[in-house]
């Protein structure tokens, strides 16, 4: 899934990593936006072998966008602000 920045797309940049790979994002992004606009494609993998997931409801209800942030723990990507230097792992 590739989120497209269609408005206000020139905010100051921030950098984070997903599973070690660099992700370029912008201030004001949620973690979900940062990752999916930054080319991550997906956020987690279903435990039961039916593929990758990238969130679904964006309002904290579907529970399908959990990721891990170093030093913070597991968070819903849709409801967490991205910040400079965050180290994120899928799932």
């Amino acid at each position: 899934m590739k989120l497209q920045r269609v408005r206000d797309a020139n905010r100051p940049g921030i950098a984070l990593t997903l599973d070690g790979a660099e992700i370029a994002a912008q201030q004001g992004d949620t973690l979900l936006t940062a990752l999916l606009a930054g080319g991550a494609g997906s956020l987690r993998r279903s435990e039961f072998g039916d593929g990758d997931r990238a969130g679904f409801c964006l309002m904290g209800a579907c529970q399908d966008c959990w990721v891990s942030v170093a030093g913070v723990g597991r968070v819903r990507a849709c409801a967490t602000q991205a910040s400079q230097g965050m180290k994120v792992t899928r799932g």
């Binding site: 989120l3 269609v6 206000d8 494609g41 990758d52 990238a54 679904f56 409801c57 849709c78």
Partner: peptide
Amino acid sequence: WTLPGVTTMGAAQIALKTQGCSIGA
């Protein structure tokens, strides 16, 4: 419907409204 890139209608709106993003091109 579980593929990355499929969201609820509300999610599509939230992405645009609060993040200036669309769920795809």
